[in-house]
Design a protein around this nucleic acid. Structure first.
Lengths: 145, 145
DNA sequence: GTCCCTGCAAATGGTTTGCAGGCGG
DNA sequence: CCGCCTGCAAACCATTTGCAGGGAC
């Protein structure tokens, strides 16, 4: 995976879209930049510096960043949205293997479904077909308590 | 797909687990029995006969039925749980192709992921690995408005 | 100076729960 | 009869929104 851009470059990407590189937004991007795994809104909010932003602001920021394709939203099936920072120009398509005991997450690099995707699309006459796929299981650490 | 059991047989399955075959539960099973596609709680509730049950009762019933493996829960990514009736002894594993415009659902019979599943499991040392996979696209009807 | 953003608080929508009475087995 | 179930209402949790003041450019 390509390394993420530095904070100044991320801020630049915001300004390029006539969006403001405000304090809370830079904090959020910095938090995501340090994380290999998807973070929930609550986790991001908790990692914010003291008084560094409001929960509603985090929600609004994630919406904005998602719309700009600067972050990608993942649904790990527990009713909580999670986000990962995107490398510019990458669509961030990949999957996760989630431990159902400790909620730990492993990134799965390969995506093996694109061929199936086109088969599913043509068989049913659908266009613009995408997919969501996540794996669940019990991680090594949780197998021996 | 094997046809679903009749209502008496479904009621029998409840009693076998010392659960009561009450009015609301039978109504819910009857509604699901007629449906090929997953139904949301709201949809089930709306299909109930006049005064045939409370919304909370539907939630509680779906929980119970899911625990008994009489229904399967699906998450189509819109924050609403949906349910399908299960044939006894079947785990109901399959996937859906969802139209992002009209929310129509096509059932995808084959599951082609089980081999990948074991590969993902052994590579990462996980046990009991399962997966969730749903496809999204634009259905034929919605392509020509 | 102009809008975009923020903080606060209240609203929303899906889902869960506490409680007292009711019905199935 | 006993305990599982139900209806009603209130609680919960993630997320969204209205509003007025404040800051980035």
């Amino acid at each position: 995976m390509r390394p993420h851009a530095g904070l100044p470059e991320l801020a630049e990407r915001l300004r390029r879209c006539s969006r403001k590189a405000t304090g809370p937004r830079q904090s959020i991007l910095e938090i995501l930049r340090r994380q290999a795994h998807p973070l929930s809104i609550k986790e991001i909010f908790a990692a914010l510096p003291e008084g560094g932003g409001d929960l509603a602001t985090v929600y609004r920021s994630m919406h904005l960043l998602e719309g700009m394709a600067m972050v990608k939203r993942f649904d790990l099936g527990d009713g909580v949205a999670r986000f990962e920072l995107l490398v510019e120009g990458d669509d961030g398509h990949h999957h996760h293997l989630v431990c159902t005991r400790c909620a730990g997450v492993v990134e799965i690099e390969d995506c093996f479904i694109h061929e199936l995707e086109s088969r599913v699309a043509s068989r049913n006459g659908f266009k613009a077909v995408t997919h969501k796929l996540e794996f669940f299981g019990i991680c090594p650490a949780c197998q021996n308590p």
